[in-house]
């Protein structure tokens, strides 16, 4: 490049460079609480409370080890169970429903869609009292299956809307061709449609997993010692809060890790899921 060309491109490139630096700074600022959480998780408690905050310390795995001595396992197993089973249930209910709303639509499809989304707008606080009382009467308090049922209901509307939007993308010609070739419904579903909506299924599952794994309100009100999930394990640190920051940071890191990793891997699907299929 000649000197003249550089001189012309100079100011423009410099402002683009400045914008890039600015973007990086904002990105790091946003990420900083997460970064600090992870750093703190590798500290000894004494290093976690320093004024000014310290970056120089001997890293340790002591906190993570202590978590499992403190009985973190059952909480993680409960979360894993409630998240996995509710997500599978959601898919089992939502996929046929989405089929009935997209491929061979029932009458009043709009009303049904409206109903599903309106349940999502129903504030949870409006139903928690009867759910608590009913669960108490049938002996379902502190039972992880109660969470499974509620998480399924919580994610079902999102999943129906998402799966419908994915199913609608299957071109009519493909289904016509399958019918012409004499494919049975079963074959059409498994061999033709499933491969086409597999990414959609994955995206839907991801969204359900995020919301179920992170859920706190039902868990804190309906569980105690037996069925408590990971967020409750974290809340357990609040009693002694101010004393065990490193321990708390390790727990928070571990609790967030599964969803963060899944979300990082599936960033593309995330947008579509969060907009319930509206944004492609």
């Amino acid at each position: 490049m000649t000197a003249a060309a550089v001189a012309v491109a100079g100011p423009r490139r410099r402002s683009a460079g400045l914008l890039t630096v600015l973007t990086w700074i904002i990105g790091i600022v946003f990420f900083f609480p997460v970064l600090w959480m992870v750093i703190t998780a590798f500290k000894h408690e004494a290093d976690a409370y320093t004024d000014p905050p310290s970056l120089i310390f001997t890293p340790t795995l002591e906190q993570f080890r202590a978590l499992f001595d403190a009985g973190a396992w059952p909480y993680f197993l409960n979360s894993l169970f409630a998240t996995t089973v509710s997500t599978l249930l959601v898919l089992a209910l939502a996929v046929p429903a989405a089929y009935a709303l997209a491929i061979r639509p029932v009458k009043k499809t709009q009303d049904v869609l409206f109903f599903f989304i309106s349940t999502k707008m129903l504030p949870v606080v409006a139903v928690i009292v009867p759910i608590y009382v009913i669960a108490g009467r049938i002996g379902a308090l502190d039972n992880v299956w109660t969470l499974v049922v509620l998480y399924t209901a919580m994610n079902l509307p999102i999943a129906v809307w998402m799966m419908r939007s994915f199913l609608q993308e299957i071109p009519a010609e493909v289904l016509e061709a399958a019918a012409m070739d004499g494919a049975s419904l079963r074959q059409t579903l498994l061999k033709v449609m499933l491969p086409m909506v597999a990414p959609g299924l994955a995206a839907t599952a991801l969204i359900c997993v995020i919301f179920a794994w992170n859920e706190f309100f039902f868990a804190v009100n309906l569980t105690a010692s037996q069925a408590a999930t990971v967020p409750l394990f974290l809340v357990g640190f609040m009693t002694s809060e101010g004393l065990y920051w490193a321990q708390l940071a390790a727990a928070a890191t571990l609790a967030s890790l599964p969803v963060v990793l899944a979300g990082w891997v599936a960033q593309k699907q995330l947008v579509r899921g969060l907009s319930m299929g509206a944004i492609k």
Binding site: L248, V259, V260, A262, Q267
Partner: peptide, 29 residues
């Protein structure tokens, strides 16, 4: 950078709130 920016949304809200209350907003440390 995009990955950095979306991460706060993926952090468990209870974990995020605890981090804000302690390591971020604590009056002394």
């Amino acid at each position: 950078v995009r990955t950095l920016i979306i991460t706060p949304f993926l952090i468990m809200p209870v974990a995020g709130a605890l981090v804000w209350k302690t390591t971020m907003l604590d009056p002394l440390f």
